[in-house]
Design a protein around this nucleic acid. Sequence first.
DNA 1: GAACTAACCGTACGATCGATCGTATTGTTT
DNA 2: AAACAATACGATCGATCGTACGGTTAGTTC
Lengths: 208, 208
Amino acid sequence: MSEQRVATAASDGRLLRGARSRRTIARHAVDVASVEGLTALSIGRLAADLGMSKSGVQALFGSKENLQLAAVEAARETFLAEVVRPAAAAARGLPRLRALVESWIAYAESPLYPGGCFRVATLPEFDSRPGPVRDALARDTHDWQALLAAELRRAVANGETADLDAELVAFQIDALLCAANTALRLGDERAVDKVRRALDGLLPVPTR
Amino acid sequence: MSEQRVATAASDGRLLRGARSRRTIARHAVDVASVEGLTALSIGRLAADLGMSKSGVQALFGSKENLQLAAVEAARETFLAEVVRPAAAAARGLPRLRALVESWIAYAESPLYPGGCFRVATLPEFDSRPGPVRDALARDTHDWQALLAAELRRAVANGETADLDAELVAFQIDALLCAANTALRLGDERAVDKVRRALDGLLPVPTR
DNA sequence: GAACTAACCGTACGATCGATCGTATTGTTT
DNA sequence: AAACAATACGATCGATCGTACGGTTAGTTC
């Protein structure tokens, strides 16, 4: 049904307008939530920031939870566009893995994201609150780590690193990036350097 | 001035009562905040939970920010008692480092802490909000990583591991523990196993 | 052109928030 | 006994929250 809505959106100016408004609101919601959290998202505040009426925002999302889910989805798309897609230019395996980390660093450092990585900011907020928001954030985490693990496996197959437990190392890399994000927020300029050095330590040189 | 207050508390029944009430409230605040965050802490809610009057709680802390700071301080004390102090029984160096990690795991897994590690739950919430709360949480993080680094340096000096960058490895261990805490909240039972295996990988065997 | 739909607005609701009063009670000090 | 200090209470304030309802406008379908 959702696809039907999207499909008709091309020919229906109303749906087109609505989708555009939803996008605008959701993107701003990402900015707000990355700093103040998904719980602090308020319909009235977003409406005021964007010069809309509170009831208009309410009507577009139906409930606060749907607004939060829309923010998670918008953040996911941004992440794919800013981190995952640029790295696709690099060759699969170790080069792409390094490209992913580098674009992630740029993403976390960018002043465009006042609160840093969206997932790092919001997952700790919801990891103990069962519900669709937590599930969506957990899915993002899983997909990201699975992506890292896939490139790690490819790196091993290519002989670019010695054998390793891809899932475990992917977990470690993600842990490293999350910690670096927090360290950056706290003003630790050496965080990026730490990530790069620690990453090298996690990738054993191939023995040949 | 704060010491004077504590000093007189022994002889002043009023201050004694007040200190006891503050402790009770702060401890409950830690439980609430570990699940719902420090922002979600509300004076009225704590008062209702503990059967006190809202204005009573307000009078004891003066402001919401002071209540949050008291929660951070209470969590710090609990952390010292549950994680740091028990590990002091182990010999300095590698044994104590492992003891710290093991007691941390027990601490994070314990159902006594519904939201898991307090710092992991609250630091991402405040890392982009300058102020005394963020500073207090940053101090906790710094002290914890410094403690890990100190034991790492001792382990190197003892010849229990090969040479390493203590500060960097401490950062990695903390990152690992934080990630494991989140993974535990999401229901990943393998998280603990991942921590132990990854930790071994971070501690290079001494060459002799 | 009539019927329908979606976006959007204005208004209003009950609830909760942090904070500030005034006051009673209890304990200490002089 | 008098003055003072700290805990604790009840009541109230203005603000903000999420949600609901009715009405208007613009676009689509028949």
